[in-house]
Simulated scan of single mutants.
Amino acid sequence: MTTGVRLIRHDQLAQTVDYAYAATVDAPVRSIWVAGACPLDLDGNTVAVGDFAGQAHQVMRNLVTALEGAGASLTDVVKTTVYVASTRQADLVTAWKVYKEAMGEHDVPSTLLGVTVLGYDDQLVEVEAVAVIAEGRQEAPGRG
């Protein structure tokens, strides 16, 4: 059973971007809003201090885990926001490359932002997501 997520591109917008401009969902669905996934280990410690790519990898692992807890996966995501605590575009690109690798061909609409500071000590990267799953699809066991 699929969610009916359809990624939208438009020939009157730049074709050089590596994300869809919009997404639609054509099936009855259950919506999932995922809090910003952070680069924390199981003990709540920030991993890969000072390393944008290392933190982005942990963020994406944590995002996958959060989605699985709601019975979803990355391919059910319809929108993301990627936050990077830096004013350097190169740092944003470093985090974005890890994000894109994890998302694969599922290039959903996303916003990439450079921000001043994030919530945890030494945190450099955070990704929040909205996902949908088809009604009636079984939820994965998670903490409720």
Rank of each mutant, 00 (worst) to 15 (best):
R88T: 03
R88A: 12
L67P: 06
A20V: 11
V34Q: 00
T94H: 07
A102L: 08
C38H: 11
V77A: 01
A53N: 08
A70R: 07
G44V: 09
D41Y: 09
L92T: 08
R88C: 03
V93D: 15
D91Q: 12
L74M: 12
T75K: 13
V25Q: 02
G36R: 07
V98L: 03
A56Q: 05
A23K: 08
I32T: 06
T94I: 11
K79L: 13
D41P: 09
A72N: 03
Q55G: 02
Q55A: 01
R30M: 05
D51A: 10
G54R: 06
S86N: 11
Y19W: 12
V29E: 01
V34G: 00
G54T: 06
V17H: 12
V78E: 03
V93E: 15
D18A: 13
K79D: 14
V93F: 14
L92V: 15
R88Y: 07
G50Q: 07
L42C: 02
Q58R: 15
V59N: 02
A70F: 06
D91V: 11
P39L: 03
S73E: 15
A72H: 01
K79C: 05
L42T: 11
G50W: 05
V17D: 10
T80C: 07
V29Y: 02
S86Y: 12
V17M: 12
L74R: 11
R61S: 08
A37T: 03
T94D: 10
T81V: 15
G50K: 04
V49Y: 09
V77I: 15
A23D: 08
I32S: 00
V78F: 05
A90D: 15
S73N: 05
A35F: 02
R30A: 08
I32W: 05
M60P: 04
A66D: 14
S73K: 07
V82T: 13
I32K: 01
A48V: 06
A22Y: 09
V64G: 01
D51M: 07
V29G: 00
P39E: 04
Q58T: 14
G44L: 05
L92M: 14
V59I: 09
A48R: 10
A95H: 13
A95V: 09
W33T: 13
Y21A: 06
H57V: 14
V34P: 00
G54S: 09
V47T: 15
D26H: 11
A53R: 15
